[in-house]
Simulated assay, not measured.
Amino acid sequence: MNPSRGPERLVRAGQWLIALLFAYFLIQVGGALIADLPLLSSPPRLEQFLDQPAKTALEAELQPLESRREALQEQAERLGERQQQAQARYEREKASFDNWRSTRSATAQSDQNPEVIARARQLDGLLQQQQQLSGEQAALAARLRQVQASIAVPRQQLQQLQSEAQGRFQAARQRAELRAFGIRLLLVGPLLGLSLWQFRRFHRSDQWPFVWGFLLFGLFAFFVELVPYLPSFGAYIRYGVGALLTFLVGRALIRWLNGYLARKQQEQAAPQEQRQHTIRYEKALQSLARSQCPSCERSLPRREGVLPNYCMHCGLQLQHDCSQCGALHYACFPYCPSCGKPA
């Protein structure tokens, strides 16, 4: 049961559309304004707090050392490959020599044969080559350790330089976050307060679409443009503000509920005719269509689709008989739906 006429519903929908469009364009203007603020568009960068001359000097000192280290590592890799090849060749020659000696022993030929001596000397040469390569590897490893020790000092200094710059950068970023939040708070705080005050005072006026649109704009600015930028130092501020807002909103809800219950008690204590006159016609029809009492707003049971004549919760008369034709109708009707007699 909708008490509004067709044109009224159309105009009401258009008014809500105006409210949403008004809020949308205000949000776009506010977002563009905040984005163009110079103190919010240039956050600090790490490079700004790094000692560039010292960094350049350390990098210049490290570059030849790093090149030298890479060259030594490549040389060590090549030397290792040669060492592996020499060892593999020695093992093949030694295995061949052992097999050859076993064969000569089986044929009772002398071990002092010049060929035996020549092949033994060849194996000694291969063994000496391995030892020489091992010595070169040891010397190369010592030079590589020396270069790495030389690299460690400027690299540690460079890390210390970057660590100090990181500390200054973190402090500057926290200050920038506080400054940005303060600027947003100076813009959004009064805006939200004005929108709430305006809504409380003018939301029932004929300019209510603009009031609602401005309220939506204020709420969007608070929850989107302000709350996500709340600085967090160990999460104390963020959760502390959240707890404070929860406490304030909770107290406001408790006060509203207590006031609502007090008003309902006063309404139920008033005479029957006075209670009926204080209920708006549209609200009464909407409540009855939902099977609710227009006064106490509690649910009403229907019997065979018909509401009771009185509310069993607060005693409000819901239906009565017409004094002229005797037809039963809602007590909120200004005219009898059967004979048209004014109620």
Rank of each mutant, 00 (worst) to 15 (best):
E81Y: 12
G315T: 05
C339D: 05
L230V: 11
Q15S: 12
F25W: 14
L215Q: 03
K341V: 10
G259E: 15
C322W: 00
P43T: 05
R275L: 06
G242R: 09
E164S: 15
R45T: 12
L318W: 06
Q274H: 09
Q131P: 00
E304P: 03
R82A: 10
L161P: 01
R45I: 00
Y24T: 08
A331Y: 08
Q87D: 07
Q15M: 13
P154E: 08
P231Q: 05
V188L: 06
W16V: 01
L33P: 04
C332P: 02
W197K: 04
Q265N: 09
A35E: 14
L62V: 01
R201Q: 12
C325G: 10
Q48S: 12
D111E: 15
Q170M: 09
C339T: 03
E77C: 07
P154K: 00
E70G: 03
S195D: 05
Q157D: 10
L196Y: 06
P43W: 07
L191D: 02
N258E: 12
G6F: 15
S41M: 08
P3A: 01
L21A: 15
W212L: 14
I237N: 02
W212Q: 02
R255S: 11
R78V: 13
K341L: 11
Q266K: 13
R104S: 00
A269Q: 13
F223A: 13
Q292L: 02
F210I: 02
R119C: 05
F25R: 06
C293A: 07
L219R: 03
Y24A: 12
Q87M: 09
L21C: 13
G14H: 07
E77H: 14
K94Q: 11
Q170W: 11
S150Y: 08
W256G: 11
R9W: 03
A76Y: 04
R78I: 08
F181T: 07
Y281R: 11
C322A: 09
Q268V: 10
I254A: 11
L158T: 04
R82Y: 01
P337H: 12
G315D: 04
R238Q: 10
G315A: 07
C314Q: 03
P231C: 05
A13C: 11
G30K: 09
I151N: 00
L123H: 04
A108P: 00
H329N: 11
L316H: 06
A252W: 11
E297T: 01
Q28W: 12
V153H: 06
L215T: 06
R78W: 13
H277A: 15
A142I: 02
I254R: 09
L127D: 09
L40M: 13
R179V: 14
S287V: 01
G167P: 00
L10I: 12
Q286F: 00
V249C: 06
L17F: 12
P209T: 13
F181M: 03
N99W: 07
S299G: 07
L140I: 02
I151S: 03
A165T: 01
L26Y: 04
E8A: 12
W16T: 03
A289G: 03
F210R: 06
H313T: 07
Q317W: 04
A270I: 00
Q174Y: 02
P271M: 03
Q128H: 11
Y330P: 04
R12A: 15
Q198K: 10
A243M: 13
S96E: 14
V188R: 00
A86Q: 11
A172I: 05
L127M: 05
